[in-house]
């Protein structure tokens, strides 16, 4: 089941070039560019309605782009659709199956559509991998949402694809289910050598497993790069809560900390600076006899993401 080195690890396994999709005057995806490399767990992050699912549907030829180009395994999707889809396993939004068929029969059906010669033991092996051992012959109509999600992942693996596209695979799962799926994705990448394209609207989820990521909002790329680089930025967004904000503002404006002041509300002042500055400012305020009631810090990217998602 481990992937062979069919593709150049240095070149993108998936490349979106100026990809756009419009519905009338509304641009669901707006000139999006991204590269996913072999062996990546690539996080595709954005708030609800950012254009993630539309992008994924274009990558899988479910909808046609208004503009731009999609290359997978170095080939144009439009010209090599069947070759490419044969090497992709995917879940688009929630995984739906034929309810009147068992899990085993559903997997056998989708494997045969993929042209894969899959026997019963392979189906049972994949179902065991996703934690559905013992439920192989149950009809899907009796499955819970979590079980369907697991079966969805089993379906993506049944034909041994090179690239796995998962669109919000943890939606609706309980905490244990989320951990299981996370571990499974890491197993797929590390042990089986798969490349995973993971869409999510939860930053912490991407942070925990992705190697590279892109954030999109309103169909446009906001930022793209290595997760470590993006999220370990030195600069933090720090909110100090005060008992007397006016007194605190007067003291801060007369000090060097005024250079780091970003904005203030009725009881909070927001600064942009590094982690070491937090304790220094706190000590300074104590010396000036300013009562601090709370300190909250976030990385700048995290802060930005929280703002766009809360909007």
């Amino acid at each position: 089941m481990k992937s062979g080195n069919l593709f150049d690890k240095q070149s993108p396994i998936l490349s979106l070039q100026n990809l756009s999709k419009s519905y009338g005057s509304f641009k669901a995806v707006d000139h999006l560019n991204l590269d996913v490399f072999y062996g990546d767990v690539f996080g595709f992050l954005g708030p609800n309605g950012a254009g993630k699912s539309t992008t994924i549907r274009m990558m899988l030829s479910l909808i046609s782009p208004s503009e731009g180009n999609i290359k997978v395994f170095g080939k144009e999707l439009q010209q090599h659709r069947n070759f490419i889809l044969g090497k992709i396993g995917c879940i688009v939004e929630k995984p739906d199956f034929y309810k009147y068929l068992s899990a085993e029969k559903n997997l056998a059906y989708f494997a045969s559509l993929s042209g894969a010669n899959v026997n019963k033991s392979k189906i049972y092996e994949v179902l065991e991998l996703v934690g559905l051992k013992g439920r192989e012959n149950d009809k899907v109509k009796g499955y819970s949402h979590g079980m369907k999600q697991r079966l969805g992942i089993a379906q993506t693996l049944i034909h041994n694809p090179e690239l796995i596209v998962l669109d919000e695979p943890t939606t609706g799962l309980d905490p244990q289910g989320i951990i299981d799926i996370r571990n499974l994705i890491l197993h797929l990448q590390k042990d089986l050598g798969k490349t995973v394209f993971l869409s999510s609207h939860i930053l912490s989820e991407i942070e925990m497993i992705a190697t590279r990521m892109v954030i999109i909002n309103k169909g446009k790329e906001v930022v793209q790069g290595e997760v470590k680089t993006l999220l370990n930025s030195e600069e933090l967004v720090v909110s100090f809560g005060f008992i007397n904000i006016n007194k605190a503002l007067t003291v801060i404006r007369e000090s060097k900390w005024n250079n780091f002041l970003h904005e203030h509300t009725e009881d909070q002042i927001v600064f942009h600076f590094s982690e070491t500055d937090i304790s220094e400012l706190n000590a300074y305020l104590c010396n000036q006899n300013i009562g601090v009631k709370s300190i909250e810090s976030r990385r700048k990217l995290e802060d930005y993401f929280l703002r766009i998602t809360s909007n």
Binding site: L60, F83, Y98
Partner: peptide
Amino acid sequence: ANGTIRLLLTRPVS
């Protein structure tokens, strides 16, 4: 209606 069309049309079949 069942949502299975998404899986069906992402298989390598025209």
